[in-house]
Nucleic acid binder design. Structure first.
Lengths: 233, 233
DNA sequence: CGACCGTTTGAGATCCTTCAATACCAGTGG
DNA sequence: CCACTGGTATTGAAGGATCTCAAACGGTCG
């Protein structure tokens, strides 16, 4: 369900991540192939394997990206917030499924119109490259985390990463379920829950509501995340 | 130790992955900022955190890319062969360490000279983007593998991936140690060894030498890799 | 209130790790 | 030629972190 489509003219395109640093002319070219979209929580933006005909920029809200194995096992590749692009495959099909975790506002760029711009707008291809490179860097950090960290280190890293991503060092919003967190970190829902409980007991975090976590002891979290914490934690 | 530096004029640049599809003029521009290098097995190309002043293209041989945690735990991000680029960060520092597994031939592009080309050679930025996007796709496949697959599924997937990468469906070269494989898959060296032994016992693979693995039963491997194999394996 | 859905908690099982011993292989020097 | 050495791989036994299965809890909504 597409809640709303705003005429392109009403959007401040120069403020979008896609256009930042590009000239006004480039910005208007980009505006010409884009439209604003709203999605409710729990909707699918596109599926892994779909024809990649659009690039999206998130204006507000949060999405989850994931891949599935044939038997249903899921790996979440990331949680995206405002300012991030997605659907950035230079060719072919989407490599993951994108679903909204909250209500989301998006700017959509049609690939058909976008293609020409990439080669003609100076700096645009480079900008797309930079976005993809950043996504790669995050994927590789996640690899390190999933492959070599313990459950406690993963959870601590996750909490700090969300705080960083959301720009709120002391409290994070958690619109994703425990199951989402588990599928992001390579853990089960029970292990996520148990680990959070342990952090609560130790006073490192507080959970006033299911979708809020207060980071009470930032330093302790940092230690837990990097794995050089005292043995009694 | 740099074994050899070949004058740029002697290299067939048009055949390099970096230049493929670009014009002859673009190719000569790129040639102007590049040089050929050889490295022996076991050398470091660059370290995680180093100033990223060069982009490399592999001409022959194999490298490993990895990140380290403060306490020494290692996660290998990939094994690279001929035709792959590395060091492709659009800015800043290298995000991983690169070491040679075998003797390696490389084409090196200095960033200082390369920068200008990116904005001036039509199609180049897009090409770099495509390379980074491909690296991202591989990182995300690896995420799925490490986060959600069992040891047997990981090993089977690894063997098939190497066969694909090396273009030899029936036998793969294994210049990396068991420890490398473990650090790539998020397993210990013992689990890697035990899993390979099991595959040997079941006749799915054969190991004539430590650095060779024959894939005897490709179909069985595919089944094991995707996780929908019969329970008795 | 009662149903529902996600979370938490518990108990037991398991896969993988850890620790330790042995085997293998290539290189070296007697 | 062969013992010795160092490094990597294999194998075994035991332990532990995480998973699985199951029940209880807690908030939300009609």
């Amino acid at each position: 369900m597409q809640l709303q489509t705003v005429p392109a003219a009403k959007v401040n395109f120069a403020a979008l991540a896609m256009c930042r640093g590009l000239g006004t002319q480039a910005t208007s070219h980009i505006a010409a192939v884009s439209s604003l979209q709203r999605k409710a929580a729990g909707e699918t933006l596109f599926n892994e394997g779909d024809e990649a005909d659009c690039i999206y920029e998130i204006t507000s809200g949060m999405l989850r990206l994931y891949k599935l194995l044939p038997d249903g096992r899921r790996q979440i590749m990331g949680f995206l917030t405002a300012g991030h692009l997605l659907g950035l495959a230079p060719e072919g099909t989407y490599v993951y499924t994108a679903e909204t975790l909250t209500d989301v506002a998006l700017c959509r760029y049609r690939r058909s119109g976008f293609e020409r711009l990439i080669d003609n707008v100076p700096g645009l291809a480079r900008r797309l490259w930079a976005f993809t490179a950043d996504e790669l860097r995050m994927a590789q950090d996640q690899l390190m985390m999933i492959g070599r960290k313990t459950a406690m280190e993963k959870i601590a890293s996750f909490l700090l990463m969300q705080a960083e991503l959301q720009g709120t060092p002391d409290e994070i919003r958690v619109p994703m379920t425990r199951s989402d967190i588990g599928d992001y970190l390579g853990l089960t829902i029970e292990t996520v829950s148990r680990t959070l409980t342990k952090l609560k007991r130790d006073g490192v975090i507080a959970v006033p509501r299911l979708d809020r976590i207060e980071l009470c002891d930032h330093d302790q979290l940092e230690e837990l995340a990097s794995g050089d914490a005292d043995a009694d934690f």
